[in-house]
Simulated assay, not measured.
Amino acid sequence: MARALNAAVQLARTPNDGPAHASASRAAALAAAQAWRTVSLVRAHHPERRALALLLARAEAGSADPLELARWARLLRGTARCPISFRPAREPIRSPALAPHRARPGADRAAAGR
């Protein structure tokens, strides 16, 4: 998780043109994918899972301050528990990863018609 936050910080600090941005973007995407796998290991309705998922979504969306992300990365290093005091500030995050899962398009309508 900390690696994903640090990669998002690096991406935010890299100019948008040139090979450095492309490299930072790839590193951030890989770290985020690994972090989502880690988040999926936390029990489904555990408050830490929600806090970590929201933090990761903010990092991916680029809506968090890089200094705030770096601070959270330091707090999440190692095997310590998630500092549950994290509460997402301001606006809700609109992320496909946090949307309710649907088995297939139209599945809800098909089940309702039975």
Rank of each mutant, 00 (worst) to 15 (best):
A4V: 10
P19M: 10
L75F: 04
G18Y: 00
A12P: 01
A70E: 14
R58T: 01
A53S: 14
A97Q: 11
D65S: 12
A53H: 02
H45P: 06
W72P: 03
A64D: 09
Q10Y: 00
A57F: 11
L41D: 14
P105C: 08
C82M: 11
W36E: 03
S40Q: 11
L67A: 15
R104P: 06
L56Y: 00
S25E: 10
S23Q: 13
Q10L: 09
R50P: 00
L76E: 01
A53Y: 05
R58D: 02
G78A: 07
A22T: 13
A53L: 09
N16K: 09
P47F: 06
P105G: 11
A103L: 15
N16M: 11
N6W: 07
P88N: 09
A59P: 00
Q10A: 14
V9E: 02
W36F: 05
A89M: 03
T38G: 02
P88C: 05
A59S: 06
W72A: 10
N16Q: 13
P88M: 10
L69I: 06
H46Y: 04
A51G: 07
P96E: 13
A70H: 15
R81E: 14
L55E: 03
R58A: 01
L41G: 09
A53E: 03
T14R: 05
L30Q: 01
D17L: 03
A51T: 04
F86T: 03
R104I: 11
I93Y: 00
N16L: 06
R94I: 13
A44R: 08
A31G: 07
L76S: 02
R49H: 03
T79Q: 09
A22N: 13
S25K: 15
L5T: 02
G62K: 04
A35S: 05
R43L: 06
A29Q: 15
E68S: 12
A29S: 15
E68H: 10
H46L: 07
P105N: 14
I93V: 14
V39E: 03
H46S: 07
A20H: 06
A61L: 08
R50A: 12
L98R: 06
A22Y: 08
L98A: 06
P96A: 14
G62D: 10
R81P: 12
V42I: 15
R3I: 07
T38A: 13
A97L: 11
S85N: 10
A35P: 03
A29E: 10
L52Y: 09
I93C: 09
E91V: 07
A99L: 11
L55K: 01
T14M: 08
N16G: 12
A70T: 12
A97P: 00
P105S: 13
I93T: 11
R94F: 12
A4R: 01
A53K: 01
A44W: 03
L56N: 03
G62C: 11
A31H: 01
R58N: 04
R94Y: 13
A51R: 09
R102Q: 05
L30R: 09
R104M: 04
A57S: 09
P66C: 08
G78D: 15
I84C: 08
A53I: 00
A89E: 09
G18S: 08
F86V: 12
L67M: 09
A24D: 09
